[in-house]
Design a protein around this nucleic acid. Structure first.
Lengths: 194, 194
DNA sequence: CCTACCGATCGGTAGG
DNA sequence: CCTACCGATCGGTAGG
């Protein structure tokens, strides 16, 4: 914590508290106390509580977006691309559990126009997954599933990771990503019994 | 709304507002205004704001629990049992989107001892799913997956339904449940290309 | 079910 | 970065 600027420090504490208690239930006084300054002093580094939320949400969004864009640049068959997209998502979530949780849950406290802007970004991200699925169906790699529903299912499964992932546990982000890819691509049923 | 007791009316409005704005950001005055009475009058029907949350959370939990218990009573092979459990879960969520959302997201505003009690109940519910998976693996219906991780994935996928399910859309709860079961059991990959 | 009110706490500003 | 403070709003109670 010592080699961080005060602004970075505020940001990290805010991500943590917004995740634990929620944005609405976190007061600027709680935040300040956790840092060790007075509430009024926060305003030398940030302009408002909502601005803090906005920054967390949009910078998290950017991380997810960068990750999926890197995957899209790879020339891979759809099944490997889907696995790579899942791995990339898991890596972003696990590398920033607090920020991801805020990004996923607290965005609704954004006021306009940020709220609408956020929704657009999130929709575009989902569309990237859907595109991979569509390509896979078209090229015969995937079953002819409802790709809208299926992309929602995949992202839903991934969205909840922050809720139970233990960064100090034995499961590495890579293992987690691999297992998720396997299970979502292959299903749980043993094919021989089918 | 007209043939409901005032208490039921308060409950429904609270589920709706807790879902939309979150528990912490919903004030008793907002709630009262939406109903058309003064905030003080709410206290003739409920004892506190948290009590309202507690009731919503635990009654929702009971609905999910009853549903899975009914499924467990059926004598079914593991694959069909898993499908039935998924169907049952989807039915509960879609029949009470607001309550389910509160149950899933706002429980953390419960204070002790309700918070711990809630966590126990939720864990037991997850364990039911895991039991089905364990049985399926043991009897050779399912691949030898990590059943802890896999039960979390399934429930995560199901947990997000309230976020995007449109009850007035064309997708019925039955269709949704069927598609989820299919996709989680069989995976997306076309077996012939494997 | 209402009016009137309680002490506590909120996000944020002025001024240094 | 602090003290001092603003008006607004919070959950809840007293008394009718």
């Amino acid at each position: 914590m010592k080699n961080l600027t005060r602004k970075e420090q505020i940001r990290l504490v805010a991500e943590n508290m917004f995740r634990q208690k929620g944005y609405a239930a976190t007061s600027m006084r709680h935040l300040a106390k956790a840092i060790g300054i007075e509430a009024a002093s926060l305003y030398n580094h940030i302009s408002s509580k909502e601005d803090l939320l906005k920054d967390i949400c949009f910078e998290s969004a950017a991380e997810f977006f960068n990750a999926i864009n890197d995957v899209q640049k790879l020339e891979l068959p759809p099944d490997e691309k889907l696995a790579a997209a899942i791995m990339a998502h898991v890596k972003v979530v696990t590398s920033n559990l607090n920020g991801s949780a805020v990004f996923l849950h607290e965005w609704r406290f954004l006021s306009e126009p940020h709220r609408s802007e956020y929704k657009k970004v999130r929709k575009a991200y989902r569309q990237e997954f859907r595109n991979i699925l569509n390509e896979g169906v078209k090229k015969g790699y995937f079953k002819p599933v409802d790709t809208k529903l299926y992309s929602l299912s995949i992202l839903s499964a991934l969205h909840w990771i922050y809720d139970w992932y233990n960064p100090s546990g034995e499961l590495s982000p890579e293992d987690l990503g691999r297992q998720f890819s396997y299970v979502l691509l292959e299903g749980v049923r043993k094919s021989s019994t089918k």
